[in-house]
Design a protein around this nucleic acid. Structure first.
Lengths: 101, 101
DNA sequence: TCTATTGTTCGTATTTTATCGAACTAAGAG
DNA sequence: CTCTTAGTTCGATAAAATACGAACAATAGA
């Protein structure tokens, strides 16, 4: 079960992570991943073309917010909760608890 | 003592705030404001032209991260700690405690 | 093998952001 | 009133991010 490249915990960069989270679409994706656990790309993006979704997944992955495992034809994404917590304690909770509008 | 316009606490928008904080220069400004308290524009930006600094101040102010009071010829900036804490509890602490690199 | 499914990559158009000089504004000092 | 100081606003340019169709790659299933 292959895994797409992603930064190590110690390499997580705050400005990069904040930027990844600063897009409303990506923030929604992160919230859903937090609620529903591991999700495929298709399960997350219905209202946008695949290529756009793929871009957002890449941005989140490159920033270190999510990890993607390739399982057959499906890509399973999950939040790097523990890694984020280790590097930026409390960040994820703050973001998930924040009012949506 | 005039005050430049800024969003109300209830209007603070997470993506907007995260974006404001996602720039390394602005993050530095926020850190310094947190450490040293109220600072003038000039006291914060030494390595960049005034117009660039003004842009960053505006971005932070429009996002609701800082507030700017005009006192004579000087503009005093300060972090909206309490407002941020009320709207996004813990956010500022997380950001300020995060490793710099 | 042929086909359908899942998602990435590429190319390009559009929008946003950043940067910086120059002109401008407001207030205080002399 | 004039000069200086502090910072904004304007205008141009460059860099980055977003969006999306089309072509491509990998795998599962018939």
């Amino acid at each position: 079960m292959r895994e797409l490249p992603y930064p190590k915990t110690e390499e997580l960069d705050l400005p990069r992570v904040l930027h990844a989270l600063s897009d409303p679409a990506r923030l929604d994706m992160v919230r859903r991943l937090a609620q529903e656990g591991e999700l495929t790309c298709g399960a997350l993006g219905v209202d946008r073309p695949k290529s756009s979704m793929s871009h957002h997944f890449r941005t989140l992955r490159d920033a270190g917010v999510i990890r993607t495992c390739v399982d057959g034809t499906v890509h399973l994404n999950h939040l790097r909760k523990d890694d984020l917590e280790r590097r930026f304690p409390g960040l994820l909770k703050v973001v998930l608890d924040a009012p949506e509008t």
